[in-house]
Design a protein around this nucleic acid. Sequence first.
DNA 1: ACTGTATGCCAACGTCCGTTGACCTCTGGC
DNA 2: GCCAGAGGTCAACGGACGTTGGCATACAGT
Lengths: 190, 190
Amino acid sequence: MADPDAPRRRSDVTRTAILEAARQRFAADGYERATVRAIAQDAGIDPSMVMRYYGSKEGLFAAVIDVELILPDLNALPVDDVGAVLVGHFLDLWESDSVLQTLLRVGATNEAGAARMRDVFAGQILPLAERFVVTRKDAARRAALVASQVLGMALVRYVLKFAPAADMPRADVVAWLGPTVQRYLTAKAP
Amino acid sequence: MADPDAPRRRSDVTRTAILEAARQRFAADGYERATVRAIAQDAGIDPSMVMRYYGSKEGLFAAVIDVELILPDLNALPVDDVGAVLVGHFLDLWESDSVLQTLLRVGATNEAGAARMRDVFAGQILPLAERFVVTRKDAARRAALVASQVLGMALVRYVLKFAPAADMPRADVVAWLGPTVQRYLTAKAP
DNA sequence: ACTGTATGCCAACGTCCGTTGACCTCTGGC
DNA sequence: GCCAGAGGTCAACGGACGTTGGCATACAGT
């Protein structure tokens, strides 16, 4: 019986090596400074392999950011816990997966990265906000507020590395940001 | 009687033209994609002038981000208004001056930009937080929280351009973020 | 009026980048 | 055992970049 995880092509191991190296380089250096040559060297292959399998640097980047980013379903949660749990999940996501770091770094200067970031939040936070309000416009606004706080914390904690933010224990971040997010989602509009 | 504003050197007009062009390019494109050649063309001069007056691209960038960024003194304000006024002032700053946009864009991928961003907030927000708490560590933590919310809003509003955030009227931003910042500064630690 | 210096342009250098095409090498099916 | 094709290397191209040095011009001090 065939192993369903077995590579379908002999090249699959190379393909994923490239992808993994690209993930890390893009996340660490941003789009421009992450060179195809450096990525290829990390993956232990020739730069021309990148072109063969991903067409161009842009194609490689598109493959890197084309990942499903799924937040756990929070609909079953008690309404009062949504803020804290959401903040906690985002912290997990940032620390376990480099895709968000990539998007934040690249989104600052690259329109494709910014667009993907918008998509991610439209797909993840917007539906969440729609649970609490009636009009779509109000939901979008609340989702943007949540995004501003969650992304802002990621920015100062993981990218800019403000010491007080980077050193703050996870529980403290949740305790401070949870009520903020909770209020953005559920409070009456001011 | 000599005009005190008169240029001390004939080249001062060129120098400032370069600086202004650099400001806009760095703010719009980030460090890597803002080329010396493009900046020179915007300023209407030869690229070699940039090297003559600023030594290198890095020197030019250093000159761009070496500006005083002064928040109005909020010490005279009623304690309850600090959050809202602070948010309002930051919105003004972002919309009137491209330096912060530059720092945010560049800070995402460039360590010098990130370091300058840390300096700015250590100089501006940290003293503010020290008004409300006793220990220096607590003040640093609260300043970081304020920075996360203020920078996060700037990120989604001006850089990533999330439509709901970008379209939100200034007064609404103040109304939503003011209480958050107020809480980060004055609330009892959770 | 003369001269030293500041200001500016032009052409070029060396480097690094993304990308290409020619050329080996291994492997699986017949 | 042969061979088509996939996997991989190598060298090179064309272009853009930061940067440099040489040369022309305009100004200011005498």
